[in-house]
């Protein structure tokens, strides 16, 4: 264990802990834009700089490991002045159209600008203008709002193992883009959207569907597969308008394309809400009891006529483990056959 003090408070933490994490344990807030607890530290936004006694220049707390006897100060007039300059510089190259931005109210950059009271900007100048819009079906990429924190690049590489996007060019011309600046063509898991601290990456389906303050969050479990990721449905006027996942869930907040973007079936007019039975060549609505009676009668009839092995069961990956267990149990003891399989095995 390593002992250090932050703002005069002593704490003991494990070797290899960063100053930022140690500060968090002491409930000391340090602003940051590029850091994400699940991704490797980047040290690019320079907001999390702290002073360390004996070191002539400020260090980024997200990249600096603790060392024995370290004396850290997280806020001084000099540090706050530097943070303000950094924020002004970022905002000098930002559309600042918060009034119509999808992310307003839920945007880290906006929040920091608020806390640092940045009304005027000393540094006007050229802004990056990107005419081309990305035509992919899921992710709105408004790269003029990108602050190049690199979270999306890292989540795509480190968590998703895809690497569909990377930094390109350098200096002021730096941008994050797919190969040869084409439209995004990937798994569309949307992890990049989940980690973006600004309005640069948002879901296309979310556009103009409501501000976060009007939204009711409902936690549930994804029904797409047996993994059972935790979902948070964002509901406005009894309609799901977007889906996220919380970081403290067992799936750590990560989702796939189905969980994140595949929710339109919920309000689809084509969605089956009641069982249908085909009568006289036409599907007709029926009650659950009616439908189940019909199925059990048919199964019994087949079993008696052709034997239990004439029946096979195929289960779905959209069922939970428990449901799949019950299904095979039903096939073996109810029907009396071992003919049971599961689509995920194919």
């Amino acid at each position: 264990m390593i002992k250090l003090t932050i703002n005069g408070k002593t704490i003991e933490v494990a070797e290899g802990t960063t100053v930022l994490d140690a500060a968090k344990m002491l409930n000391i807030e340090i602003p940051t834009l590029c850091h994400h607890p699940k991704l490797t530290p980047f040290g690019g936004c320079r907001l999390c700089i702290v002073e360390v006694k004996g070191v002539p220049r400020p260090l980024t707390s997200c990249t600096t490991p603790v060392s024995e006897g370290m004396e850290v100060t997280t806020s001084t007039p000099a540090l706050e002045g530097l943070r303000k300059t950094v924020l002004e510089l970022i905002l000098s190259d930002h559309p600042n159209d918060c009034m119509v931005c999808e992310k307003a109210g839920d945007c880290t950059l906006q929040e920091l600008a608020y806390f640092y009271g940045i009304r005027e900007n000393r540094f006007g100048g050229e802004r990056r203008i990107y005419g081309k819009k990305d035509g992919n079906p899921f992710i709105e990429r408004d790269m003029e709002k990108c602050i190049l924190c690199g979270r999306c690049v890292k989540v795509c590489d480190e968590v998703q193992g895809v690497g569909a996007i990377d930094f390109a060019y350098r200096g002021f011309k730096s941008k994050i883009c797919p190969t040869f600046e084409k439209d995004l063509d990937c798994e569309f898991c949307g992890q990049c959207v989940a980690v973006c601290p600004t309005g640069a990456l948002t879901g296309k389906m979310w556009q103009l569907r409501g501000r976060q303050k009007d939204i009711k969050e409902i936690d549930t479990t994804c029904s797409y597969c047996g993994t059972g990721c935790n979902l948070t449905l964002h509901v406005r006027q009894n309609e799901v308008v977007r889906v996220t996942s919380k970081e403290d869930t067992w799936n750590e907040g990560w989702l796939c394309v189905k969980g994140r973007f595949g929710y339109s079936f919920i309000n689809s007019p084509d969605r089956l809400k009641k069982p249908l039975i085909k009568r006289n060549g036409k599907f007709e609505e029926a009650s659950w009891n009616e439908a189940l009676d019909y199925i059990s009668a048919k199964l019994r009839e087949i079993k008696e006529k052709h034997g239990p092995d004439s029946i096979a069961g195929l289960s779905s990956a959209r069922c939970t483990n428990e449901e799949n267990y019950l299904f095979q149990k039903f096939m073996r003891t109810g029907i009396g056959t071992n003919n049971v399989d599961h689509c995920a095995r194919l």
């Binding site: 980047f42 040290g43 690019g44 936004c45 320079r46 300059t85 950094v86 510089l89 970022i90 000098s92 190259d93 540094f123 100048g125 050229e126 602050i147 190049l148 690199g150 930094f167 060019y169 350098r170 200096g171 002021f172 011309k173 730096s174």
Partner: peptide
């Protein structure tokens, strides 16, 4: 230096651009 800035950190990426402007 502005042209050779790697673009990773804000002060260098945007700051040197503003200095040059």
């Amino acid at each position: 230096t502005q042209m050779e800035s790697c673009g990773k950190c804000v002060p260098c990426r945007i700051g040197t651009k503003r200095l040059l402007e």
